[in-house]
Computed example of a mutant assay.
Amino acid sequence: MDFLRIDTIIAVLVVLFILSRFLPVKGVKQIKIAELKELLKDKDLQFIDVRTEGEFGYYHIPGFINIPLHQLSNKANQLNKEKEVVVICQSGMRSKKASKVLKKMGFIKITDVKSGVSNWNR
């Protein structure tokens, strides 16, 4: 009987962990690619692409600077914490992780582009 309880608890924890990977980051604004096209006109915003240098070099949206996700913690000092940061990646997973990193570092105004660069021309 105890094994059944432990198995149930483990199963519930695994499900909660998986669900948490897909839920939006609390306090981070989520937008679609169509909304990004309007935001690009705002020169007060900071646009970062967290894909790898190779991905960014192959194709990127004009106006974005490249800070790969694995370098974000070390290079976030290049960004102004007082200004809104718009984060994008290929499909939305890395930008979500980047949003969490920025949030933990004290950034307040963060916008995550949910669908990523892959949907830019659609």
Rank of each mutant, 00 (worst) to 15 (best):
F3Y: 15
I6N: 11
I6E: 12
T8H: 10
I9F: 13
I9V: 13
V12T: 02
L13E: 00
V14Y: 12
F17H: 05
F17M: 05
I18H: 09
S20V: 10
S20W: 12
R21S: 13
L23H: 10
P24Y: 10
P24A: 09
P24S: 08
V28M: 02
V28S: 01
K29P: 00
Q30A: 11
Q30L: 10
I31M: 07
A34S: 11
K37H: 15
K37T: 14
E38S: 10
E38D: 11
E38N: 09
L45W: 03
L45I: 03
D49G: 05
V50H: 01
R51S: 05
R51K: 05
T52R: 05
E53M: 12
E55A: 10
G57C: 08
G57H: 09
G57W: 07
Y58I: 01
Y59P: 01
H60T: 07
H60E: 05
I61Q: 06
P62H: 12
G63Q: 03
F64L: 00
I65T: 15
N66P: 09
I67E: 01
P68K: 01
P68Q: 00
H70Y: 14
H70M: 14
Q71D: 02
L72M: 10
S73M: 14
N74G: 14
A76W: 04
L79W: 06
L79C: 09
N80M: 08
N80S: 13
K83H: 08
K83V: 06
V86H: 10
V86P: 11
S91Q: 13
S95H: 07
S95V: 07
A98L: 00
L102E: 05
K103M: 13
K103A: 15
K109L: 00
V113F: 05
V113D: 06
K114H: 03
G116F: 01
V117K: 15
S118N: 15
S118M: 15
N119I: 10
N119L: 14
N121G: 05
N121F: 10
N121C: 07
